[in-house]
């Protein structure tokens, strides 16, 4: 496979992490190559995400996102930031419970019932909100973190959630 030069890459900037997560899901569904990365230093605030795409797809991607109600506030060329969200997922067994770690976020559920019994780690303000809305409910009966959360901590919790529900459904 030929490695793409930076000049082929573009960044879609969105107003918040929640929109970036939605945009990634939509673009992948529509067969675009899209990857979540850090925004460039001059526009980042510390808890934000951008979507790296092939620059030649940028117009089409923007149009598709508009159709789904996701508005990009800017599209930049170049700038491969190198930084992308952590993708390490780990499991820890506690007999009747399984703990899933995605980076610094942890989700623990009861193996038999699928009830989320605890959420820990993270430090953005939507994590307590997500805990209020998810703990005590079954994995397959809740709104996903990406629907309720708006930060990078929520993105990592989404990854833990996806792993947890995959294991629970087996």
């Amino acid at each position: 496979m030929v490695k793409k030069e930076n000049t082929e890459l573009g960044l879609i900037l969105l107003k918040n992490v929640q929109d970036a997560m939605k945009a990634e899901r939509i673009l992948k569904l529509k067969n675009f190559e899209a990857k979540l990365v850090a925004p460039p230093p001059e526009v980042r605030v510390g808890c934000d995400l951008a979507l790296e795409i092939n620059i030649i797809d940028s117009y089409g991607a923007e149009t598709v996102l508009k159709q789904y109600g996701v508005i990009a506030f800017d599209i930049l060329s170049l700038k491969n930031t190198q930084l992308k969200p952590l993708d390490i997922i780990q499991e820890q067994d506690f007999k009747d419970y399984l703990l899933i770690k995605a980076g610094h976020m942890k989700l623990t559920f009861a193996k038999e019932t699928g009830e989320i019994v605890n959420i820990s780690g993270g430090g953005c303000p939507d994590i307590p909100y997500l805990a209020l809305n998810m703990v005590g409910k079954r994995l397959d009966e809740i709104s996903q973190p990406e629907d309720l959360g708006q930060t990078l901590c929520a993105l990592m919790l989404q990854r833990a959630y996806e792993k947890a529900i995959k294991i629970f459904k087996v």
Binding site: A38, R44, G46, C47, Q82, L83, K84, P85, L86, D87, I88, K101, G103, H104, G121, G122, G123, L152, C153, L155, M156
Partner: peptide
Amino acid sequence: LGEMAFLADHEAIHPAYVRN
């Protein structure tokens, strides 16, 4: 420990961006 890895990674701007 996860957040300590973030403090140790000068490039990371959030724990979600810590390099593997």
